[in-house]
Design a protein around this nucleic acid. Structure first.
Lengths: 154, 154
DNA sequence: CGGCCATGCGCAAGGCGTTTGCGAGCATCG
DNA sequence: CGATGCTCGCAAACGCCTTGCGCATGGCCG
């Protein structure tokens, strides 16, 4: 049960969660106290899952993004669990999904440089058997961590 | 110039930026004031790019994740700019990269349901010509928004 | 139509976390 | 061996966030 102000708050907080409540308050034309309670409610009701910081990839030493499209050699729940465990243990894998279609899994890697991909590749195939892997290097990031659309929220 | 404490702070903040400075302080065995200054420094030196909130996809009404792998019909800088502009204007596209390899672009979409993909698909092809598009639906999210590895940071 | 209840706002005070000035310890370097 | 710079810890001050309270508004029922 969100009104226009709630949606605006979620939008603002996605862009900058460092904004003070007083800033947020007059952006949505509300008193500080009312705004504070709105935010508390949004957290209590689970709209806001957690707060985090986004770090500078360059500064962190992992400027390179690589996507790995994977096809599995085995279609069993045992293999799936094994694969999930392997992925979970590799911090360079920052995102991983099991997909429908030709590709079984997609992995997003954060790496110091392109050549480092091979290290991760070998680390994975040493532990699980894959049928096919194709890696694509990100040449240009058009969007990343873009705010989620807020218009579908009820 | 990061030491072990700085890295630990970045790690903790990625997991939960809502932690108070006093909490963080004793996690890294430091006084509150010293910890506060560390964090200020990490922000000033650009390690921390910004603070944000991660919203609940389900609550927001966009639980479905779809990846679109795109091959372009035209290889010109003019087309690229047009495509980038189109993508920027679609809030359901939460991530977009230009890639090397067979696939030219990868798009990550946040949608209310699978069928909604068609709406976005049509919105894109109405504005730019594509050679090939293949969409894969995420059946299972093994990782998403995982903390960046902090060990490569200097 | 009037009264009642629920909901949400604003005001102001209180509480709490964060920040900052200051002195001390330690390592580095001339 | 002494000076310099860096970072820590302590304590106070500052500022922000929270919360209790009174009030207005809108909906519902008698």
């Amino acid at each position: 049960m969100l009104d226009e102000r709630d949606r605006k708050l979620l939008e603002l907080l996605q862009c900058d969660a460092g904004l003070s409540v007083v800033d947020l308050a007059d952006r949505v034309a509300l008193s500080v106290s009312a705004c504070s309670r709105r935010i508390q409610r949004l957290e209590a009701e689970g709209y806001i899952a957690r707060r985090t910081v986004v770090l500078d990839r360059g500064r962190l030493g992992v400027p390179t993004t690589v996507y790995a499209l994977i096809r599995t050699a085995h279609h069993s729940s045992e293999w799936m669990e094994r694969f999930a465990a392997v992925i979970a243990d590799i911090p360079e894998v920052v995102e991983a999904h099991r997909l429908t279609g030709n590709v079984d899994y997609i992995l997003k890697l954060a790496l110091p440089r392109v050549e480092h991909y091979d290290v991760i590749y070998k680390k994975i195939i040493r532990k699980v058997e894959l049928f096919d892997v194709s890696a694509s290097i990100s040449m240009e990031t058009l969007k990343d961590g873009a705010p989620l659309p807020v218009d579908y929220a009820s």
